[in-house]
Lab assay of single mutants.
Amino acid sequence: MSRVPSPPPPAEMSSGPVAESWCYTQIKVVKFSYMWTINNFSFCREEMGEVIKSSTFSSGANDKLKWCLRVNPKGLDEESKDYLSLYLLLVSCPKSEVRAKFKFSILNAKGEETKAMESQRAYRFVQGKDWGFKKFIRRDFLLDEANGLLPDDKLTLFCEVSVVQDSVNISGQNTMNMVKVPECRLADELGGLWENSRFTDCCLCVAGQEFQAHKAILAARSPVFSAMFEHEMEESKKNRVEINDVEPEVFKEMMCFIYTGKAPNLDKMADDLLAAADKYALERLKVMCEDALCSNLSVENAAEILILADLHSADQLKTQAVDFINYHASDVLETSGWKSMVVSHPHLVAEAYRSLASAQCPFLGPPRKRLKQS
């Protein structure tokens, strides 16, 4: 649940008159999402009104509101027999009622949201009550392989729920002597030191190019640089560091992050930047690179990204790559990247197969709970 924001200063709310007192009302909304995959969808019983329910879910471990999704594969009634019906059901509720908006969509073979439908307002739910769409999607369109909505005969539904909580009022009075504290510009100011090479005390040599930097900042941000300058190493004695395995453009992006906490060109060089972040123990930059690479996972590059993640101990990226390969196994196994990995990294192939087997055979063990970014 997000923290209630402070109200904007009255002088910034309007260029008009300023009242002596004010009130700011925040209506709290808890948002969460749920993904439900139905394997072997074409084998569902086709009687009209037949119901399939998901397991229950909530916004978190401490949330007492429990929900589930309900599907009628062949419609709810005679009117909707040519459609799939989809509903959000409130299973248990400690209150007399709650209000919530919802959005349903289908994830296609690429994991993209399609055929989205959402409620136009927050509906009133009581325990045992459901709301949804009797005519969510035509069955003939859903079952047509050309539309790519049932890869490997799996129907994957994605649901986003927004639950309306209580409202909170914050009130106060205006004073004539309003003090406005300026925003912190530390990142910009440190970035200026790097860009202008002011007050530098060490030189970093990268592929024949020299960059002036500040030992204190490098040591504070990177345990690797800290070790170089702290001990009686040649880098500490000469205040000069030779860097041979990072390209200059990648190095500059890494230094921008060290000084400012930002990497504006990360998406263009996420793979190389991940390697640099791993070498210099820049954990936050490493996770930022993992996130960017996750966003660009595809059938063509899944094997290469899995190898990269394994090489640099990028655990979150590795998990996402394995899950992606499992979901698109029939396509990924035909790529040149996968065939190369079979020869060069057989242990990763074995890991992917083990994960695929456990996903398809849940009876082999208890269900695993899916539970950071600093």
Rank of each mutant, 00 (worst) to 15 (best):
C159D: 00
G111I: 08
V343L: 05
V322H: 12
P7F: 02
C23Y: 04
D130E: 01
E97L: 09
S340A: 14
P8R: 03
L84I: 12
A213R: 07
S14N: 05
N39C: 05
A216W: 11
K115Q: 01
N174E: 08
K372F: 09
L333D: 07
R121G: 07
D201Q: 01
F158W: 09
N239K: 01
A359V: 05
F136V: 14
M178H: 03
F158H: 14
P10N: 05
S197M: 13
E145L: 08
S313R: 07
C68N: 09
K286Y: 03
Q373N: 15
S162M: 10
V287S: 02
G16C: 05
D130I: 14
L193G: 07
V91I: 04
K66N: 02
V349E: 06
K339C: 09
E210Q: 13
D152R: 10
E334M: 05
D144S: 05
H347M: 05
A321V: 03
G172H: 04
A219I: 14
D152P: 08
S42I: 03
F324N: 01
E78V: 09
F225H: 01
S6Q: 10
S54Q: 00
G192R: 02
Y24V: 09
D201F: 00
S197T: 11
G191H: 10
K134Y: 05
V91C: 11
G128L: 14
E12G: 06
S295C: 09
E249R: 04
N296K: 06
L84Y: 09
D278E: 02
S355R: 05
S298Y: 06
K339H: 08
A146Y: 15
Q209F: 15
T175C: 02
E118N: 10
D331S: 09
S344W: 08
S85P: 09
A122S: 07
Q165H: 08
L306F: 04
Y327W: 06
K66R: 13
K279V: 06
K252E: 02
F229P: 11
E12K: 09
E195S: 03
D315A: 06
F133T: 14
A303Y: 07
E334Y: 14
A359S: 02
L90W: 02
A359I: 00
S59Q: 05
S96N: 10
M117S: 12
P223E: 09
P248M: 07
Y34A: 08
S197G: 15
V18P: 13
L308T: 09
H328S: 08
S119W: 00
D144H: 01
S197N: 15
V322N: 11
S14L: 13
S21L: 06
D271S: 06
E20P: 12
P73R: 12
D144E: 05
K339G: 12
F324L: 01
Q173P: 01
P10K: 04
